[in-house]
Simulated assay, not measured.
Amino acid sequence: MAVRVDSWVWAVRLAKTRSQATTMCRGGHVRVNDQTAKAAQPVKVGDVVRVRIRGFDKIYRVTGLATRRGSATEAAKHFEDLTPPPLPRVEQPAAVIRDRGAGRPTKRERRDIDRLRGRDVDPLE
């Protein structure tokens, strides 16, 4: 047995509406077994579905076929999350702390600030 991929994405609550799930498929944001999926492509138990949500890829293995949208706990029974954990964020200072009343930074201090923020593009260097 198989279910349309857009219907499954909607039923397991990866998309808020069915039309949003269809739009995600049309836009190439849904892949089934590493191939771009059209909205009507069938998905079956054991398939790997990759969905791009807010700029990040989420990877799911289909463990059950859902045709109706239910509660979140019911939806969680129909997939297994294979998404790797996010990489740890590199701690960078939020701002350069200057003494109060020190005035504007000098040219050298501004270059140091830019270098610290990762904007060390200087056309003369």
Results as ranks from 00 to 15, higher is better:
V62L: 02
V62Y: 01
V62C: 03
V62E: 01
V62R: 04
T63F: 04
T63Y: 03
T63G: 01
T63P: 04
G64V: 01
G64K: 02
G64S: 02
G64Q: 02
G64C: 03
L65C: 07
L65R: 10
L65I: 09
L65D: 11
L65S: 07
A66D: 01
A66K: 07
A66V: 02
A66W: 07
A66E: 04
A66T: 01
A66H: 05
T67V: 07
T67S: 07
R68I: 09
R68S: 09
R68V: 12
R68N: 13
R69T: 08
R69I: 05
R69Y: 02
G70W: 05
G70F: 05
G70A: 09
G70R: 05
S71M: 01
A72I: 05
E74A: 11
E74D: 06
E74Y: 05
A76F: 00
A76N: 00
K77M: 06
K77E: 05
K77I: 02
K77L: 11
H78M: 06
E80M: 03
E80I: 00
D81T: 09
D81K: 11
L82K: 04
L82C: 03
L82I: 07
L82Q: 14
L82T: 07
T83G: 04
P84F: 15
P84Q: 15
P84V: 15
P84H: 11
P85Y: 00
P85R: 08
P85A: 06
P85H: 01
P85S: 11
P86A: 14
P86W: 07
P86C: 09
P86I: 08
P86D: 11
P86V: 14
L87C: 04
P88V: 14
P88Y: 13
P88K: 12
P88C: 14
R89I: 12
R89E: 12
R89W: 01
R89H: 03
R89D: 05
V90C: 00
E91D: 06
E91G: 01
E91Q: 10
E91A: 06
Q92C: 05
P93G: 09
P93R: 11
P93W: 05
A94I: 08
A94H: 10
A94K: 13
A95F: 15
A95I: 12
V96M: 14
V96R: 15
V96L: 12
V96G: 13
I97H: 05
I97F: 02
I97R: 12
I97K: 14
I97C: 03
D99A: 06
D99Q: 12
D99T: 07
R100Y: 04
G101Q: 05
G101N: 06
G101L: 05
A102Y: 03
A102G: 06
A102F: 02
G103P: 01
G103M: 03
R104K: 10
R104H: 00
R104Y: 01
P105E: 00
P105Q: 09
P105T: 01
T106K: 10
R108C: 03
E109A: 15
E109H: 12
R110E: 14
R110A: 14
R111F: 13
I113C: 03
I113E: 09
I113F: 10
I113Q: 11
I113K: 11
R115M: 06
R115T: 15
R115S: 08
R115F: 08
R117H: 13
R117A: 09
G118S: 12
R119N: 08
D120S: 06
D120G: 15
D120K: 08
D120A: 13
V121E: 13
V121I: 11
D122G: 08
D122A: 10
D122Q: 14
P123Q: 09
P123W: 13
